[in-house]
Amino acid sequence: MALPDENKHWVLQSQNGDHAAFESLIRAHQHMIHSLTFRMTGSLADAEDLAQETFIRAYQQIQSYRGTAKFSSWLYRIGVNTCLNWRQRESRRSQIHDTWAKSAELDLSRLATKCDESEHPVQQALMKLPPKQRAAIILTVYDGLNHAEAAQILGCSETTVSWRIFAARKKLKQLLGKGGKNE
């Protein structure tokens, strides 16, 4: 991870349209964003697409970055929103596919499943959470943010984050507990 002063310099340069400076910002934050996008999607290919989309959006919006928050937090927020929007797009797309498949009388069970990377039961359990609960777990458990910081990134109140985490933990415990089944 880059030092804050280095980030500041690269951000200023990027705001002046310097692609090389933005490339440095990507290099400094690519692991963080890939980790987020993988935990949110459970797929390496989708994680790559979303990481790419996150950085492109960040570049398009970089004029609005005022330096009041840490650049990584600002970027992370774009990443989370990109993932949440992707879930909605995917859900719409999947509905269209389902309708199409039904009309074509295809056996959906024969279509290939896409997430070979998410075979790990923990990742599978994470994928069963609603996206906003998953995002709250990723921010607080994997990235170690407190509820206030997570609330800032997710654009909601601390109470909502606490509630989402509570609900997510309950479900994860059911799915991953000794008596739970993770089919």
């Binding site: 349209g17 692609h19 090389a20 933005f22 490339e23 440095s24 990507i26 290099r27 690519q30 790559e48 990481a51 790419q52 950085f55 492109i56 570049y59 398009q60």
Partner: peptide, 11 residues
Amino acid sequence: FPGRVATLLPR
């Protein structure tokens, strides 16, 4: 990866 994304950035 950074270079690939950089090629997709708007001018």
